[in-house]
Design a protein around this nucleic acid. Structure first.
Length: 411
RNA sequence: GCGGGCGUAGCUCAGGUGGUAGAGCGCCAGGUUGUGGUCCUGGAUGCCGUGGGUUCGAGUCCCAUCGCUCGCCCCA
């Protein structure tokens, strides 16, 4: 009981857990491929500045959640808390700002130092797409449609709702922020302590506070709509129109706020009631300033990230594994023939294992335990005739199959 | 960083008011060394999370501590 345990907030993925996890990633990869995205893999740790600069110095991620350490050469290194910053860094590092647009798919582990909860770990996994170099609202709509199709392919779309909002462009947001600060300052004596802090750092986040006191104040708070510039308003109109055109159902939620500073215009979340406090299963938006932060030219971009663990928990059941074939040699003389047979099955693309321990009863037991759909029995009699006994485990029936035809007959 | 719940076999969990630890599932062996799944018989498994206290005696009561879990904050 006091043996070594995984580090707090990390988990082993074994058996069904692993199958669910892999199914989420495989499905996302397949759907996203059909939209023209290419997979990238970047390092799981980066120069700390990649994140501190891009996520915003006042974001919670940077202030208290990063796994940051100094390596042996004295460099400050951070385990990535999210994928987008690293992708933008890679875009710039590889000179790909010269060949836009880039449509990137990403799958891998992320790290955040937090108290673990349902659907939240210190190491967790995301799938992620980024359409970099696309400024038109049609790319936002297409990115969202792509995410929605991933959820549909996973069969979890009926458990989730898409909520969209606009954060406007820079002038819209500055004007709105000023109005919010004025409004909340006037009501500061009724705000929660947390929200008084937010008023200093990021007043937008008061909007999605769960505190009772805050919610009453928020109910009458101004919305961004009257502060949108004509350009920002039209962008949002276009987005909603195009979502309809793509056939993606959504509802507007003016309280959606992104936690990271680099977002503007489109913000969206696919949320669910099924995961307790962690309702967001996929979230994203537009981040036109980020590539520039990384030292590249001004570059528009839009994307989303989805939590693999959270999606895996929403899955009904992991997809079934194809059942293997068990090859069962009887007696030492049968070993070479059994090895040849099992290799032939594998060459034919089948999943096949040998059961070679114990008496025949043990071997058949083993064959059953690995979930085999059939057992190929090879003993002295079979070697003499060149015909194997093949037992179908679902029916219990046993038939004779020439050894040379095993692969084709069992395919 | 702050709150609630829970720690007994590999897993799921029983163990009124203190008397030296149980079930089901799983595992191992045999019934059957040329036939699995079903069935029968037998077996192993535990520093009862850890440390301390009360007591003749603690899984049970008290204190502390660690871990897990759910929630707040924030997010995928």
């Amino acid at each position: 009981m006091s043996a070594l345990q995984p580090v707090r907030g990390t988990h082993d993925l074994i058996g069904e857990d692993q199958r669910r996890h892999r199914h989420v990633i495989d499905t996302a990869r397949r759907i996203v491929w059909s939209y023209g995205f290419d997979e990238w893999t970047t390092p799981i740790f980066e120069d700390t500045r990649v994140f501190s600069r891009s996520l915003g110095e006042t974001s919670d991620v940077v202030m208290k959640e990063m796994y940051t350490f100094t390596d042996r050469s004295g460099e400050s290194i951070t385990l990535r808390p999210e994928a987008t910053a690293g992708i933008c860094r890679a875009l710039v590092s590889n000179g790909l700002t010269q060949s836009l647009p880039q449509k990137v798919f990403y799958a891998g582990p992320m790290f955040r130092y937090e108290r673990p909860q349902k659907g939240r770990g210190r190491q967790f996994h995301q799938v992620d797409i980024e359409a970099i170099g696309s400024a038109e609202p049609i790319s936002d709509a297409e990115v969202i449609a792509c995410g929605w199709n991933v959820l549909r392919a996973l069969g979890v779309d009926r458990l989730t709702v898409l909520e969209v909002n606009t954060l406007g462009d820079r002038p819209s947001r500055d004007a709105y922020r000023a109005a919010l600060v004025a409004y909340f300052t006037a009501h500061r004596d009724t705000l929660s302590e947390d929200s008084l802090q937010r008023l200093e750092r990021n007043p937008l986040r008061i909007l999605d506070s769960k505190d009772e006191r805050d919610r009453r104040v928020v109910a009458d708070a101004p919305t961004i709509a009257p502060f949108l510039t004509p350009e920002a308003a039209r962008f949002y109109d276009d987005l909603r129109r195009l979502l309809d055109r793509f056939g993606v159902p959504f509802r507007e939620n003016p309280r959606i706020v992104r936690g990271l500073d680099y977002y503007g215009h489109t913000a969206f979340e696919f949320v669910t009631e099924a995961l307790g406090a962690q309702g967001t299963v996929m979230g994203g938006g537009r981040y036109d300033g980020l590539v520039e932060e990384m030292g590249g030219p001004p570059t528009p971009a839009v994307g989303w990230a989805a939590g693999v663990e959270r999606l895996a928990m929403l899955l009904d059941a992991p997809p079934p594994e194809p059942a293997p074939i068990a090859v069962v040699p009887v007696g030492e003389a049968a070993e070479p023939a059994a090895i040849a047979a099992v290799q032939a099955l594998r060459q034919a693309g089948l999943r096949a294992e040998m059961a070679y321990r114990g008496n025949l009863r043990r071997r058949m037991e083993r064959a059953n335990r690995i979930g085999a759909r059939a057992a190929v029995i090879l003993g002295d009699a079979e070697l003499a005739t060149g015909v194997a006994q093949v037992k179908d485990f679902s029916t219990g029936e046993q038939t004779e199959v020439p050894i040379a035809e095993l692969a084709s007959r069992l395919a």
